[in-house]
């Protein structure tokens, strides 16, 4: 299961999970970036009660909104006099970090029930960094470092941010780890209906770049590799902001519907090797 970048929309992975469970399909590996890492971790840790998982995700998202950092904003404008903090982000992250440290205390990748790979990006080198070992806290916090909002996170001397800027739907990581059937849940960033402010302009540039990046990488990986990739791209029919927590039930439902649409094909794929075996034996 590959969970792509998509902010709050990543919660719809719970909808996909409920369909897979209903069908009795097991997940043997999770690759996640950005908001998907939070859902991915919950599944990998062996979470069973989906409503409880959604509730925890909601609390986590609430906690991630630190107060607006006026200090950083002022510094951004007067960097020449005030100096620049390499850990730049417009939101304060102290209380979120404390919350995450408390909930992920002592958890290591090696302890998880299902192998988990979190995708982040090295801010200085621009390279993708896959975290699959060691403390989960570092990997999760780095994956969640939404550019410009949450400050980057330092892991082993490298400053890491949300992997979405390198690889918004990291199917190639799953392929490299040996996956042959991949359910990839990705999100296109919705375009702005009107560009009437500086914020809308920034969002439009980011959305256009991220969508192109996702499509180009997906097109290449589908073509170049032999793994079966089933893309699940939910359609929410509206803009979803990071703070639209009230939309969560809708997002989960759309994730469920989008996954159901792909089920006939997935069932056929999963049945195929078994069929081939019985045919060969008779």
């Amino acid at each position: 299961m590959v969970l792509g970048a998509g902010g709050l929309r990543c919660v719809s992975a719970f909808g996909a999970l409920s369909v897979l469970r209903r069908e009795g399909i097991e997940i043997d590996m999770i690759v996640a970036c950005s908001g998907g890492a939070a859902v991915g971790y919950w599944i990998a840790a062996g979470g069973t009660d989906i409503p409880e998982g959604i509730a925890r995700y909601t609390v986590g998202m609430e906690r991630s909104f630190g107060a607006f950092s006026y200090r950083q904003a002022v510094r951004a404008v007067f960097a020449r006099w005030l100096g620049h903090d390499p850990r730049f982000g417009l939101m304060k992250d102290r209380s979120f970090n404390a919350y995450m440290a408390a909930s992920l205390k002592g958890v290591r990748f090696e302890d998880l029930k299902i192998p988990l790979h979190c995708v982040a990006a090295d801010l200085h080198l621009g390279e993708q960094v896959v975290l699959s070992r060691g403390p989960v806290l570092d990997a999760m916090r780095a994956s969640l470092a939404i550019p410009l909002l949450l400050p980057p996170w330092e892991v082993e001397g490298r400053l890491l941010v949300d992997g979405g800027i390198c690889n918004p739907l990291p199917v190639d990581v799953a392929m490299r780890e040996g996956a042959d059937i991949i359910l990839a849940m990705g999100f296109e960033d919705p375009l702005q209906p009107a560009i009437d402010s500086g914020v809308a302009l920034v969002r439009q540039v980011l959305a256009v770049s991220a969508n192109h990046l996702m499509r180009a990488q997906f097109a290449f990986h589908s073509m170049a590799h032999h793994a079966e990739v089933i893309a699940v791209i939910p359609d929410f029919g509206q803009q979803v902001g990071l703070r639209d927590l009230h939309l969560i039930p809708h997002l989960v439902r759309q994730g469920e519907l989008a996954t159901e649409r792909e089920m006939p094909y997935l069932r056929k794929l999963l049945a195929a090797p078994a069929q081939a075996l019985t045919e060969a034996s008779t």
Binding site: F88, G126, P147, I165, S209, H212, A216
Partner: peptide, 19 residues
Amino acid sequence: IGSAGRFAMQLSSIMSNNL
């Protein structure tokens, strides 16, 4: 990366190189 503007430029460079 000495300013917020450079931070944004770096992000955009990373995305466009990957693209």
